[in-house]
């Protein structure tokens, strides 16, 4: 799971174009949106693209996405449970 979280962070960094950020700078359990990393609604849409392209998980409603994207940990758990590829 630790390796997977690291991979996921690298994918987030790439998807959101966070040039120069290291995976270690993202805390597993810190909120991705708002106070933590500081992501917003457009990032949420970019992460929806990440989920579909990398894991075959389709998220239709962005509001649903925000719950899944609470932190790297919640995201990793959701992917492991629902991934299609």
């Amino acid at each position: 799971m630790e390796d997977f979280k690291r991979l996921l962070k690298l994918q987030i960094i790439e998807a959101l174009n966070l040039q120069g950020m290291q995976p270690e700078e993202i805390d597993d359990n810190a909120p991705l949106f708002g106070e933590g990393l500081g992501l917003d609604s457009i990032d949420s849409l970019e992460m929806i693209v990440l989920m579909e392209r990398n894991y075959g998980i389709k998220i239709e409603d962005p509001r649903e996405g925000r719950k899944i994207f609470e932190s790297v940990s919640t995201m990793a758990e959701y992917i492991q449970a629902n991934r299609k590829k």
Binding site: A15, N17, I42, L45, E46, I48, V49, E52, R53, K58
Partner: peptide
């Protein structure tokens, strides 16, 4: 025309 990244459009 599938799921696309919105940033270039914006």
């Amino acid at each position: 025309e599938g799921t696309l990244n919105p940033s270039p459009f914006i």
